[in-house]
């Protein structure tokens, strides 16, 4: 049973990691807390849902379309809003992203009602897979594998490509990056898009086993904040490990202590870790 709980925790953890990586990218590069991150995830889930129910596209097939779509939402958010508040003092950027999250969430509720919707019958639904001694649901397994692939792609992009290095440079020191001839405007727009693409993939994968509703993103953005802080702000590998830790904590805590306390345990773990490592596990 222990192995079973560990397995489901890890599978969930990889999805959390991907959502958190999207958040930490923006946070690290622009020093902006994107409160609308969970709403981007919700948009991704709805996109997958509507493509499934209107044109009968399996979420696995529509995944690239959803990723591109939410990439676009990210870029648009940067161009229309973030660009104007990025140099503003203190907590103004937060004001803007929180307003945006309210706007998107309630617009979704207005357009599509607060009802929970399910993707009933897609390629992965209701299938189980035996992995040695443990049984896992195929949707969760596929979601974890998909998240791992996307995570690796992001790692590769940030660390190996020229554009990725430009993003890193802009994160370290914006003005110097500018002096070195980096178009920071473009880098920022791209980072926001990439952040959107991460939740785009995560959302499309999650849509096959989580109910889709306007509030679907709220909990995940809270968890993503904690994961990002747990790993250290702007640290992508930190977000990866943080996601796994939180996934495991949720599964183990939910099983051994009580489902109703699993999120309390998750937040408590952050508070405890931060006592020992005040800048997160991998922060400096």
């Amino acid at each position: 049973m222990f192995a079973q709980v560990i397995a489901s925790g890890l599978l969930l953890g990889f999805v959390y990691s991907l959502v958190a990586i999207g958040l930490t990218l923006v946070w690290g590069v622009m020093d902006i807390i994107n409160f609308a991150h969970g709403e981007f995830l919700m948009i991704a889930m709805y996109s997958a849902f509507w493509m499934y129910s209107l044109v009968n596209l399996d979420p696995l097939v529509s995944l690239p379309i959803v990723a591109v779509l939410v990439f676009g939402v990210g870029v648009l958010t940067y161009k229309l809003i973030i660009k104007r508040v990025i140099d503003a003092p203190g907590l103004t950027a937060l004001l803007a992203t929180f307003g945006l999250s309210l706007f998107i969430r309630n617009l979704a509720q207005f357009l599509w009602s607060p009802n929970y919707r399910f993707i009933g019958d897609c390629f992965v639904s209701d299938k189980k897979v035996m992995l040695g001694p443990v049984v896992v649901g195929l949707p969760q397994l596929v979601a974890a594998i998909g998240s791992i692939i996307m995570t690796l792609l992001v790692f590769y992009f940030i660390q190996r490509t020229k554009t990725g290095r430009a993003i890193q440079a802009a994160a370290l020191d914006r003005n110097t990056a500018k002096l070195m001839g980096i178009d920071t405007e473009k880098v920022y727009a791209l980072t926001f898009g990439l952040s959107g693409a991460c939740v785009g993939v995560a959302g499309a994968l999650m849509a096959s086993f989580f109910p889709v509703s306007p509030d679907a993103g709220v909990l995940y953005s809270l968890l993503a904040f904690v994961i990002v802080a747990l790993g250290g702000f702007g640290n992508i590998s930190g977000a990866l490990y943080g996601g796994l830790i939180i996934g495991l904590a949720e599964a183990l805590g939910g099983y051994y202590i009580g489902t109703e306390f699993k999120y309390a345990i998750v937040f408590l773990i952050y508070l405890l870790v931060i006592q020992v490592r005040p800048k997160g596990l991998f922060g400096w």
């Binding site: 508040v85 004001l95 307003g99 309210l102 706007f103 309630n106 617009l107 207005f110």
Partner: peptide, 16 residues
């Protein structure tokens, strides 16, 4: 949720 749509949008506008 129309009230919160307007509210959210206005916060964004003011912040910008």
């Amino acid at each position: 949720g129309i009230d919160l749509i307007i509210f959210g949008a206005l916060i964004v506008v003011v912040a910008c």
